[in-house]
Design a protein around this nucleic acid. Structure first.
Lengths: 185, 185
DNA sequence: TTTAATGTACCGTTCGTTCGGTATAGTGTC
DNA sequence: GACACTATACCGAACGAACGGTACATTAAA
């Protein structure tokens, strides 16, 4: 079995339990591999496992979010496609964001640079769509931050309230909110 | 020294490192107390320390957020007062939210009910202000969720980008955004 | 003299990690 | 075909360190 086989499983674990909570015992149980076998695939240990998961997530962004934003259609439908992708990634608000979870854990320092870069490319891609629609660059930048704020915030709230509806409402309203003309309140 | 002396310090630690990252060794170093002394003040150990911090935070909400929302002035100024309070609590976006941090850590299950209740009372207090201003109850409820989403989301983004400006912008724009009439977009 | 507060040494557990080794599947040599 | 050699995939057992927590003697204070 190539090591890629186990990466979705690893992502699951890090997403559900955080970096600290995803212990090797749990990882071993979930993958069905002994601890020593894990070190065969990931000689760098737990940190390398997390790096592999981040690389997988970065690939997922490149394969799903960026094409959704850069594909055909007007700005609104592109943003709607992005929201659809996030809806599947976060399972309708039932799963927390891996990046936020790692960012809040004690492993923040290890992966902060990588996480920041993911956010920055994401924000830039959203802003690009809004600029294409005719919004001024600085406003487009602000709106892209608003998008990240709404998605991340609604995931936090959904987790806190144990209710995914805030996330679903945000996904539904966000594209139009981002596209509204510059002079509207 | 009464045990209340050490609670701000404990809150600092849990806020910065999370529940997992706030080890007894760190707590001992930060408070200047040996383990025996810590267990003298908090016989329930680390969990009781976290409970004390949560109770402190709940008291802070009762003393600062709820009075700000229920005091004199119109709805807009009340919400602005609330934002000012949050600005000091989160040090202008330089500190993450304790509730979110614990929620994302492996101790989620221990404190989930308590955290949910804090969020619910907060949301209810905001919605009350908006209902007083004439907004329909269901919209007021939605807007209160929007407030929590914006604040929590901007804290996540500020942490990710290592830049507090998204949080500061949200605090500045949020009150007017919440107060806008029902028929505006 | 009682009680609160603290230092020291220790407990059992779990952490991430490593060691030594097994089973299998080639691969080249004679 | 028989043999030695190597690389890959996997595992159980154990390691040292750190974890949260406890026992107990001692000091400081009332």
């Amino acid at each position: 079995m190539p090591r890629e086989t186990y990466i979705p499983c690893l992502m699951d674990l890090f997403q559900q339990h955080g970096y600290d909570g995803a212990t090797l015992a749990r990882i071993s149980a979930a993958t069905g591999l002994g601890k020593a076998s894990l070190y065969h695939y990931f000689p760098g240990g737990k940190e390398e496992m997390a790096v592999a998961v981040f690389e997988y997530l970065e690939g997922w962004m490149s394969d799903h979010i960026l094409p959704a934003l850069r594909g055909e259609g007007d700005g609104l439908t592109r943003l709607q496609r992005m929201c659809t992708q996030f809806n599947t990634l976060y399972e309708g608000g039932h799963r927390p964001c891996l990046l936020a979870i790692v960012l809040m854990g004690s492993a923040r320092g290890l992966f902060h640079d990588r996480i920041r870069q993911v956010f920055q490319t994401w924000l830039a891609a959203i802003a690009e769509v809004l600029v294409e629609m005719g919004l001024p660059a600085d406003l487009a930048q602000q709106r892209s931050e608003d998008a990240a704020i709404s998605i991340q915030g609604s995931l936090v709230l959904a987790l806190a309230l144990d209710d995914p509806s805030p996330f679903q409402r945000v996904l539904q309203e966000l594209p139009a909110e981002l596209c509204r003309p510059a002079d509207a309140s």
